[in-house]
Design a protein around this nucleic acid. Structure first.
Lengths: 209, 209, 209, 209
DNA sequence: GATGAATGAGTTTTCATTCAT
DNA sequence: CATGAATGAAAACTCATTCAT
């Protein structure tokens, strides 16, 4: 029974994984269901035992992967401890690391999320909301502790942050060749400077230097 | 003018305009060429007199509209004068204003650009590069004049900035109902604080307060 | 009985019964084997232990039900005694009574038999022939006894009779709501007048009146 | 313009004609749209320019052909003149003649009408109603003129008559080989005796003989 | 140049049937 | 005998594109 549930669960997972790869490579609309099936090593019809239709497969893949990312993000933030700004930096890092650790997933998220934004109107987009919520919480914590400025709406900041991160991730993923950890670190550094310190030349800091 | 509206040159424009509206409403892949045609008031076949195929129509619409936006941006920046930071703020404002002045265009750009990112590999994306270049130039100017920090790559900043703006624009456009100038101004204010001043609580400024 | 209900022999019957209901409701081609299976309370695969394929299920259901009807018809005619015309009337009644006693079966027979007429070429349609034979026999008996006109082919009459009855039955079954015994009796009366007495105004009878 | 309308009309007609043949040969559910298309000498997609879907094609074919038959029946009854019983006989003849003059149409009507009876619930079945109406009118006329017995509902009679005719037609069509005019006449004769004179041995007539 | 009827390649989805358990 | 997850062949339907007028 646990074997059986593992088999079923395994097949569903294999299909989701194949869907992410296939959709990432060709885009949702150019990807054929039969491609996903053969990438998953199952028959075409099998997909329809686990998902209602192609749209459902897209949404399920999206929600499932976002949940994984959210779980990891939440877990790492808990482990990490540290100040909110340190946590925030961790958020940046984890987001861009997808380009290193799961390039297909990165491509899938950056490209297909926008499609889903249209889908948003029709489905919950629950896990994306959840993602934002996690970051918003970090910012609120920072505001409460006086580390982050108080005069700014955490939701809007988070949304902007996400946009920047997502664009960054897309740029990384679309480069030819692999993305190194060093490159990711460099990008994180820039984003950190940009978002945390700001573009402005800070006179007080200049004096300190 | 009514003569011009009957000219072929105008017909191309009508098709592009219809394409933007139609692609914005349904997404590129769900939009039918015949929908675009009837929205433009021309026969299906006529579209193929002006564009090679549906893909070409998408790219042409995108490039054409981006060029319009770039022209306007360049023009306004020249008119405006002022410091680079003032110019930068103008960039933010103009980007978000699309949600007010041309909602379809906003939706088209935010949603379809990502699709096109895949297209990027195949076509120049010339006008998008141009857009980035304009903003990069403003930042470089700021760096040269000592108003913007020097230790940060203008291209990366610009890319991040674009991502944030684009996400912001998407969020505005997906709201139910019209977007007001006031709302746009509020968003610009937040982005300005975020990007220019940074999230960090600035002790020197606090003292100054 | 509860033991019997767990026996295989009974399972076959349950499947046939489910098939009749399901085919009646949706039609043969729109009915799914899995629907039949779940209506019968068995697994999909089980059906194929008792029937070669979906076609075989249709034909078997048809033959089986027709045999039941034939058995009953034969039995009632024997019980009844009476003149051939009385027996003929009993045939009419029993046919239309299906609409009261087994509406699904009625629908199944009236609608699917025609489909099967195409099948006829490929299978015996044995029980349908048997049904006709029973009625033919009644008519022959009537002819032998001088109660029914002799100058008319019993097979053709029977076929026409069957057509009329079947159409009548269909009309009854397609009505919204239940069919009453009274309604059936009324229809039988009409058919009796039609087939036995004829449409013609009979001058000799008029005189008698 | 009249040419164009002829072309369009012609193509529609060709498709309907092909549909009748194809549906008659294989039955609606076993017939492929592409078979109809190639029988009509058009591309698969063309069918969908004239009909919404396969169901619509079935219904349209049915209604169209029934209308033709109704037009002819109405026309012949007007031409014919004569007593209602003569007209009634003409109805029988014309119905069975379909087996001679348009065997595919005969098969199509006899087999598919039942399917459509299920469809009835969903569509008007207008022309079938019209057919019944024409016959009902003949019977009413006969009743008014005292030629046909008055104590019998014309609608029920007509329905029974139709059932008998349809079954007769089916039997003719399913025979191997062509159906001759003589065979049709023989069948008409039997039906006439059956419906008009009745099965009963008529003593008054016997005396007259 | 403009039209829009016709094309037919291409894809999702269904479902009868099988077979390992 | 019974199961039901898996299969994959088959078909309706769509829609970008063409081309005769």
């Amino acid at each position: 029974m646990s074997e059986a549930s593992k088999r079923g669960g395994n097949k569903r997972e294999r299909i989701l994984s194949a869907a992410v790869k296939t959709f990432a490579k060709n885009g949702f609309y150019n990807a054929k269901v039969s491609e996903v099936a053969s990438a998953a090593g199952v028959a075409d019809g099998t997909i329809y035992l686990y998902f209602k239709n192609k749209d459902d497969l897209l949404i399920s893949a999206f929600e499932d992967r976002m949940q994984m990312l959210n779980d990891r993000l939440r877990h790492e933030l808990e482990m990490l401890g540290g100040t909110p700004l340190i946590k925030l930096r961790r958020c940046l890092t984890l987001h861009l690391l997808i380009a290193v650790e799961a390039p297909s997933l990165a491509e899938f998220i950056t490209v297909e999320l926008r499609q889903s934004s249209k889908f948003i109107k029709e489905y919950d987009n629950h896990q994306f909301q959840e993602y934002l919520r996690i970051v918003v919480e970090v910012i609120r914590e920072g505001q409460a502790q006086g580390e982050i400025r108080n005069d700014i709406d955490p939701w809007i900041v988070t949304r902007a942050l996400f946009g920047a991160l997502d664009e960054m991730l897309l740029a990384l993923v679309l480069r030819a060749g692999d993305v190194s950890h060093e490159l990711v670190e460099a990008r994180v550094e820039v984003l950190q400077q940009l978002f945390v310190d700001g573009l402005k030349v800070d006179k007080s800091e200049r004096k300190e230097n």
